[in-house]
């Protein structure tokens, strides 16, 4: 492989990425709490969901489990990645409806969830802070 081939490959890579972007591919939105629960159970082995709240127009969700445990979902491309939150769960409210949650995994990062309203944000934050 010579320099010309590397430059050619780089141009091709950028062209493919541009095509994906221009055609508007890669959109996803959680339809509701049941889809969030289904995702969490499928991705975190041994987790049984009880209820969930979908945040940020379907970009993420917080799912509660039957053992008082929690899973956070964040959108990654067209799908969702999950992390089980280990207590003590670190949270911080940015404003009335937005909550920062530390996933405990540096590369998964902090998840910012936009709740439908201040009351639901407060309620879920309290549940997280008192998690088992």
């Amino acid at each position: 492989m010579n320099l010309l081939q590397i430059i050619g490959s780089l141009v091709a890579v950028l062209a493919v990425i541009a095509a994906v972007k221009l055609l508007g591919l890669g959109r996803a939105q959680l339809a509701g709490p049941s889809e969030a629960c289904e995702n969490a159970e499928a991705m975190v082995h041994g987790f049984t969901a009880t209820d969930a709240i979908v945040c940020g127009e379907g970009n993420g969700a917080l799912v509660a489990g039957d053992k008082g445990d929690f899973v956070v979902l964040k959108r990654l491309g067209s799908y969702y990645a999950a992390r089980k939150l280990l207590p003590p769960i670190s949270t911080a409210e940015r404003d009335d409806t937005v909550l920062h949650i530390e996933s405990g995994d540096r590369y998964f990062g902090r998840v910012n969830l936009t709740f439908p309203d201040a009351a639901s944000r407060t309620a879920w934050q309290q549940r997280l802070e008192h998690s088992a």
């Binding site: 590397i6 780089l10 493919v16 095509a19 055609l23 591919l25 890669g26 491309g77 067209s78």
Partner: peptide
């Protein structure tokens, strides 16, 4: 490019996403 055109035509918009494609292709390079 053919597959991208095809999934767009079939409205399978979850098949590709820019971030994932970029990661795959830069890992390939």
């Amino acid at each position: 490019l053919v597959e991208i055109w095809l999934v767009r035509r079939r409205k399978q918009t979850r098949a590709y996403s820019p971030g994932d494609t970029a990661t795959s292709l830069f890992l390939g390079l």
